[in-house]
Each structure stands twice: as structure tokens, then as C-alpha cells.
């Protein structure tokens, strides 16, 4: 097997006395999309935030996280990001009061040329709406901005947290397309609830359950195991209409009401 781009070993996170993660270990392959799955509240977002060094102050992180030969946990967030760890947070987190252009300009770095060509080619909308306040963009456009902002610089790995959350089915497909193209050049660790998107993008899967790793392996294999996905992910209610119309996506079709709560 080739060297993983990211390896997480025995990662434990405690926040305000609660154990959110307990000894999580997994690896992210150097190409393609690795998806982090699990029901709500199992610690997916906590995992991403711990990797990028954004655990809240009342939290305690143990274990090791390595990107290549480099240990990540002791270093401040801005250094990790400058070293090529791109982070697209949950809920987009664009700067609402700033314009689209200002949001992008913020990501520029001294000594490197920002790849505006690449970003505007992926998201022509951002070019057109440059002077608009980011807060007035639609959810999908904000997501494009959040991803575009990170793509201005070269990355060794992208962490993307629920990029399709709360988006309309059509926009979900657009976001998935973009991520597919992005993943051709840079590995992605993706948190995603939408199994149609997972099926389309993911090569490897890591499933969390109650703060521990419950399953790792090939993502497409996982999706074929109806019983497994049902028990681990409680799938059903989160799969949008567009996903169900796709043939061959078997797991989500067995709808279990309330399983994801």
C-alpha cells in the first residue's frame, strides 16, 4: 500500500468532561476521497476539528495525527493550513459582512500566486458576484465560496465537513461534481451524510460509532451491505429525493424512520 497522506492514531478528544472521541485510528489514502461516516453526534466534526487544531479551549486532545512525516497536534492552526491542510468547515463559515472578493482575498498568501484562474473556472458564479456580500449569497453559492477560498492555494489534503448539508437536491449534485473534480488533484477527507454523494465520490470509508471507529474499508463495499449501513449509519431520513431515483443505490432505499436521531 502507498503511504497515507494522513494518519490518525489513537485520537481521543474530551470536551467539558465528555469523551467525544475514544482512541480513533484511521488513515487517509494519498489519492481520492476518504469519507468519514456515522450518525449525528458520533464525533465526525470533532475529528476534523481536532486534526486542524480547532478543538475548543475546554477540550483535551490526545493521540497522534501525522501528515506525511509531520506531527500535527502540537502546531497552531494557521501553520497547518499554510503547510497544505485545507479546511472547509461545517456550515460554510464564509464572512457574511465581507464581499465575495474580500472573502477570497483573505485567503491570499505572501510569496505565492493565488490560483484565481482555477477557482473562477470551477465557480464562474464567484467571479460574477465579486462585489456582493457573502451573507446575501444562497447556501450553495456560499459553499462554492468556502471551497473556492481554500483552492486558491495548493493543498496536500482537504478536510471538507458536510458540504451538502441543507442544500437543495440540484445544488447537492453541483457540489458533488465540484468535489469530484477537486479530488482528481488533491486527496480529500470528507464528512458526508448524503449516501448518494458518498457513493459517487468515496473510495475509502471510515465509520464512527459512539466515538470509536466501527468499520473501515472500501466505501462501495460498505454501501452494498444494507444491514451494516443501517445499523451504523441509521440511514434513511437524510437521503434526498434525487438519491433515491438512482438505480443501484440500495442501502438508502430501506428507509428507517427516526434512525438518525
Amino acid at each position: 500500500m502507498t503511504e497515507p497522506v494522513l494518519s490518525v492514531e489513537n485520537l481521543s478528544v474530551r470536551i467539558a468532561g465528555l469523551h467525544i472521541l475514544q482512541g480513533v485510528s484511521f488513515e487517509v489514502a494519498p489519492t481520492g476521497v476518504t469519507v468519514l461516516l456515522g450518525r449525528n453526534g458520533v464525533g465526525k466534526t470533532t475529528t476534523l476539528r481536532a486534526i486542524v487544531g480547532l478543538t475548543p479551549r475546554n477540550g483535551e486532545v490526545r493521540g497522534t495525527v501525522r501528515m506525511g512525516a509531520q506531527s500535527l497536534l502540537a502546531r497552531p492552526t494557521h501553520r497547518l493550513v499554510r503547510d497544505g491542510l485545507g479546511y472547509v468547515p461545517e456550515d460554510r463559515c464564509v464572512f457574511a459582512a465581507l464581499t465575495v472578493t474580500e472573502n477570497l482575498r483573505l485567503a491570499e498568501r505572501r510569496g505565492t500566486t493565488p490560483a484565481y484562474d482555477k477557482v473562477y473556472a470551477l465557480f464562474p458564479e464567484l467571479d460574477r458576484r465579486g462585489r456582493q456580500r457573502a451573507g446575501s449569497l444562497s447556501g450553495g453559492q456560499q459553499q462554492m465560496l468556502a471551497i473556492g477560498r481554500v483552492l486558491l492555494n495548493d493543498n496536500r489534503l482537504l478536510l471538507v465537513d458536510e458540504p451538502t448539508k441543507g442544500l437543495a437536491p440540484k445544488v447537492v449534485t453541483e457540489v458533488a461534481e465540484v468535489l469530484e473534480r477537486v479530488a482528481e488533484s488533491v486527496p480529500v477527507l470528507l464528512v458526508e451524510q448524503n449516501l448518494a454523494v458518498v457513493r459517487r465520490l468515496a473510495k475509502d470509508a471510515v465509520v464512527l460509532s459512539a466515538g470509536r471507529v466501527a468499520w473501515t474499508g472500501d466505501a462501495q463495499d460498505l454501501l452494498l451491505e444494507t444491514a451494516l449501513t443501517k445499523s451504523l449509519l441509521g440511514v434513511g431520513s437524510e437521503v434526498p429525493v434525487s438519491a433515491r431515483s438512482e438505480p443501484g443505490l440500495r442501502a438508502p432505499q430501506s428507509r428507517t424512520k427516526g434512525g438518525s436521531a
Binding site: L54, P76, H78, V81, P89, E102, R105, L106
Partner: peptide, 24 residues
């Protein structure tokens, strides 16, 4: 100014500024 931009962004969401690689 660039620092003005960083300050305006930081007032809104400081964490996200660091997540863009800026030493806030």
C-alpha cells in the same frame, strides 16, 4: 488594507481566519 480586512473578518469569525492560514 490587508490588516483591516483581517480585522473585519476576525471580528466576525476569528477561528475561520486562522483556518485560512492567517496568524490572527
Amino acid at each position: 488594507t490587508r490588516y483591516g480586512l483581517i480585522i473585519r473578518a476576525g471580528v466576525e469569525n476569528r477561528e475561520m481566519v486562522t483556518a485560512l492560514g492567517i496568524d490572527v
